[in-house]
C-alpha cells in the first residue's frame, strides 16, 4: 500500500509540474470567460461546449503524451524489474487524469454557474451518465494513441492533430448550424460530437438520446479494446 501511495503522490507532483495539465485546464476556462460576457443568463450552450473541450484536451492530448513518454523513456520497463508491476503506474496515471478531468469540469461548472450565470442542470443521473460515457470514449481514443505512438512527442503530435478536426466536427470551433449539413451530420457521430450533443440535451432538460449514449459506449469498448490489444510495454 505504501508503494501505491508513494507512487500516487509522486505522480500528482509530476502532473502538477507538467505545463500540459495546466494548459488543458485553462484553455476551456479561458474560452468560458471570454465568451461568457456575451451569453444570455441561463445559457445552455457554452458550458457543455467547454466541458467537452476540457475532456477532449485531457483525453486526446495529456493522457497519450504522458503514457507514451513513460514507455519511450523505459520507465515502465525499469519498473518491471522491481517488485511493483508496471501496470500499477498506468492505473495510477489513468486515475489521476480522471481526477484532473473531474476537477476541470467542477471548476468550469462552478465558474459558469456563479460568475457568468449560465444554466447548471439539476438532473444528476443523466449528467453523470453523459460525462462517464463521454470521458470513457475520449480516454479510449487517448489510450489508443498512447498504444500506437512510438514516442511521447509523436503521441503529442497525433493528439493535437486529432483534437482540432474532432473539435470542429463536434461543433466546438464553429456552431453546428453554420457548418455544411453533411459535415454536421457526420460530426454528430464522432466521439466528441456525440459527447457534446448528449451534454447539450442534458443542459436543455431533455433526456439524453439513447442512440448517442450507445454510440459513446461503443467507441469506449471498441477503441479501448484496440488500445489494450496494441499496447506494448516497451
Amino acid at each position: 500500500m505504501t508503494a501505491l501511495t508513494k507512487l500516487a503522490t509522486v505522480e500528482v507532483k509530476l502532473l502538477a509540474r507538467e505545463p500540459g495539465s495546466i494548459v488543458s485546464m485553462l484553455i476551456p476556462l479561458f474560452v468560458l470567460l471570454v465568451f461568457g460576457s456575451s451569453i444570455q443568463p441561463g445559457d445552455t450552450t457554452l458550458l457543455p461546449m467547454t466541458l467537452a473541450m476540457s475532456v477532449g484536451l485531457v483525453g486526446l492530448y495529456l493522457l497519450p503524451t504522458t503514457l507514451a513518454s513513460y514507455r519511450e523513456r523505459g520507465i515502465l520497463r525499469r519498473m518491471s524489474t522491481t517488485p511493483v508491476r508496471p501496470y500499477t503506474l498506468l492505473v495510477v496515471q489513468l486515475t489521476l487524469q480522471l481526477v484532473l478531468v473531474v476537477i476541470a469540469c467542477a471548476l468550469l461548472v462552478s465558474v459558469a454557474g456563479s460568475v457568468i450565470g449560465a444554466h447548471v442542470p439539476g438532473a444528476a443521473l443523466p449528467l453523470a451518465a453523459a460525462l462517464t460515457l463521454g470521458v470513457a470514449a475520449m480516454f479510449s481514443v487517448g489510450l489508443l494513441i498512447a498504444a500506437l505512438a512510438k514516442t511521447g512527442r509523436s503521441a503529442n503530435g497525433v493528439g493535437v492533430l486529432l483534437y482540432f478536426p474532432m473539435a470542429y466536427l463536434a461543433g466546438l470551433i464553429q456552431p453546428v448550424d453554420q457548418m455544411p449539413a453533411l459535415v454536421a451530420r457526420i460530426g454528430e457521430y464522432t466521439p466528441l460530437g456525440a459527447f457534446r450533443q448528449v451534454l447539450g440535451q442534458v443542459w436543455t432538460g431533455q433526456s439524453p438520446s439513447l442512440t448517442l449514449l450507445v454510440v459513446l459506449a461503443g467507441y469506449a469498448v471498441l477503441i479501448g479494446t484496440a488500445a489494450a490489444k496494441f499496447f506494448r510495454w516497451e
Binding site: L14, R17, E18, S69, R73, G74, I75, R77, R78, T81
Partner: peptide, 13 residues
C-alpha cells in the same frame, strides 16, 4: 537490483 541501458526518468522528477 537492475540498471538498464537506455532508460530515463521523467524530466521533472
Amino acid at each position: 537490483g537492475v540498471q538498464l541501458q537506455h532508460t530515463q526518468l521523467p524530466d521533472t522528477i
